[in-house]
Amino acid sequence: MRSTFRWLEVAFWLVLVAGYVLWPGKLPLASQVLIAGLFALSYDLVLGYAGILSLGHAAYFGVGAYTAGLLAAHGWGEPISGLMVAGLVAALVGFVTSPLVVRGTDLTRLMITTGLGLLLFELANRLGTITGGVDGLQGVEMQPLLGALRFDIYGRTAYGYVLVVVFVLFLAARRLVRSPYGLSLRGIRANPGRMRAIGCRVDLHLAAIYTFAAAYAGVAGALLTQTTQFVGLDVLSFGRSAELLVMLIVGGAGLLYGGFIGAAVFMIAHHVLSSLDPVYWQFWLGVCLIAIVLVGRDGILGAGRRLLTLRRRRPVTVTAS
């Protein structure tokens, strides 16, 4: 079982590298999917592993996006350092807000995160002189990557850049969730009271993963800014947080790859269906969500895993509850 998954993992990343040959005309869309996948990975760490129900995760995505955008618009167009600064700023915001989010029940968390998300959205909206307000931030100009590779109109540089960043961050997250610390997070999701009883500092652990995930979200936002050279107010919108939840659930939460699969399905479906009719898209999105919760919530990856298990008739420890 384990070796199957390892091969599947290798194949997954090889297919993405082969994207240059497989979908050369669709590289900008593919970059967007990867960025959404990274954002969903960040949300997976919060929701799938730590069990924190949030509807305001776009706040950190937006902070990263605006940080990178403002840096580039004011002359600091070097992409990699901009990316790092954006990640750090988002992590800082995540760290400052984490005490508010970590405490309380699902419902309070839901409302606090929603409130924080709306708060930042309004802030960006009102600080129009700095952020450009509803018109978006103009004048984002990126310097060539590593001083040599220009961001071209076909998105070749952008796709490679995004793919490398996402891969590196993915490896780190994979290492993290398989560490003892990652196990403690799953323990907290399953039963916080018992974890506390065996001496785990629950609040501290949750705050740490929340900060870490905020940094990932910030990097994802910065990547979007750098590859599209524009920041719109919608990076902070409630809709983005809600769509993020949908992506992760469609793909499968608590499985690391779920976010990427979900992002791909979601964005391609969006691309196809909303070109027919935007109303159509929203309707089917809603129906899909209802169907997913009625049938079982472990998403596409979970279903695939169940199929594999059925075929082999071997018990497997399924991590998603």
Binding site: L53, L55, D106, Q282, F283, C288, L289, I290, V293
Partner: peptide, 18 residues
């Protein structure tokens, strides 16, 4: 779980809007 309830009712909102 609350997550399931959130998903179900967000789905309903999308359908209602459409």
């Amino acid at each position: 779980s609350h997550l399931d309830q959130v998903l179900l009712t967000i789905g309903l909102v999308f359908v209602a809007i459409a």
